[in-house]
């Protein structure tokens, strides 16, 4: 049972990681809390679902969902955040919250208030050893998350653009004086982060077989807690925090059987970390 719960928890944590990464990357470079990121996540699920219904192939729908989210993320940066960057950070935050609410309503109007099903067969098959089962969708989630993390790591450490991205996160002005095109780097940042959120939306859509207009509501605030937990802007810290929250939720429910709502776990952890390690799990002062 422990093994099974471990699989359940890591799968959930992986999805949290995919959603939170974009958020932490945006914060790292722009110092904006990008609440509408959860709207991009839902958008990814809907685009993936509708392209799945058109094309009938899961992998294609995953890629289209990611691409659609990436474009949406880029447009949000270009037309909403970019013109507001000279204002105090509260201005883009308000815009972001407003946009998130508008997106939820838009999904409801376009796709209807009902839960839609994302009934895709991936074609990997379940893995079962004794009473332990790693379901097809769990394998899928682990695989996609792992691939995304490897890609991100390689990109950030092995390429010049990645280096520029890290430089911008540390100090955008200095990076700019060294000839880094900060605007382009910000755009790349949003494209990547949003594509990952889109992937998370598609994965959850398939994992739960449900896509609905307000599916971003809980990730919207849980991802914020995870990002703070990981140390704002800290990528390895965010991944660690996300997996940790996924596991903690699963263990509280499934092993300790403590009847408190799972969504509280991330916030309790956040409060504890802020009390004892105010810069996050891996953050530096």
């Amino acid at each position: 049972m422990l093994l099974q719960q471990l699989a359940n928890g890591i799968a959930m944590g992986s999805v949290y990681a995919l959603v939170s990464l974009g958020l932490t990357m945006v914060y790292g470079i722009l110092r904006i809390l990008h609440v509408a990121h959860a709207g991009v996540y839902t958008l990814g699920a809907y685009i993936g679902l509708f392209s799945f219904r058109l094309v009938g192939d899961f992998w294609v729908s995953l890629l289209i969902g990611m691409a659609g989210s990436a474009v949406a993320g880029y447009l949000i940066e270009r037309f909403l955040y970019s013109p507001l960057l000279h204002l105090p950070r509260i201005a883009p935050l308000i815009v972001s919250i407003g946009l998130f609410i508008a997106l939820e309503e838009a999904f409801r109007i376009v796709a209807g208030p009902h839960t839609l099903t994302y009934n895709a067969r991936i074609g990997i098959g379940d893995l079962s050893i004794g009473s332990f089962r790693l379901t097809e969708t769990q394998i899928l989630i682990l695989f996609v998350t792992f691939a995304a993390l490897i890609f991100l790591w390689a990109f950030l450490t092995k390429t010049r653009t990645g280096l520029a991205m890290r430089a911008c996160a540390q100090d955008a002005e200095t990076a700019s004086s060294f000839g880094v095109n900060v605007k382009a780097i910000i755009a790349v940042n949003f494209l990547f982060g949003s594509a990952m959120a889109g992937a998370a939306g598609v994965l959850i859509g398939v994992y739960d077989n449900q896509v609905w207009p307000t599916m971003g509501a809980i990730p919207a605030y849980k991802a914020l807690a995870i990002v703070v937990l990981g140390g704002l802007g800290n990528i390895p810290g965010t991944v660690l925090a996300a997996i940790g929250v996924g596991l903690a939720e699963t263990f509280f429910i499934g092993i300790l059987a403590i009847p408190f709502p799972r969504d509280a776990v991330a916030f309790i952890a956040m409060i504890l970390v802020l009390m004892f390690k105010p810069y996050g799990l891996l953050g530096k002062a």
Partner: peptide, 23 residues
């Protein structure tokens, strides 16, 4: 054997509950 309550609305991932039931 067991009596578990889940949060409503909002809960979508019942695997931790069900894994415990399966035990």
């Amino acid at each position: 054997l067991t009596k578990q309550m889940y949060k409503f609305p909002g809960e979508k991932d019942f695997r931790p509950f069900l894994t415990r039931i399966k035990e």
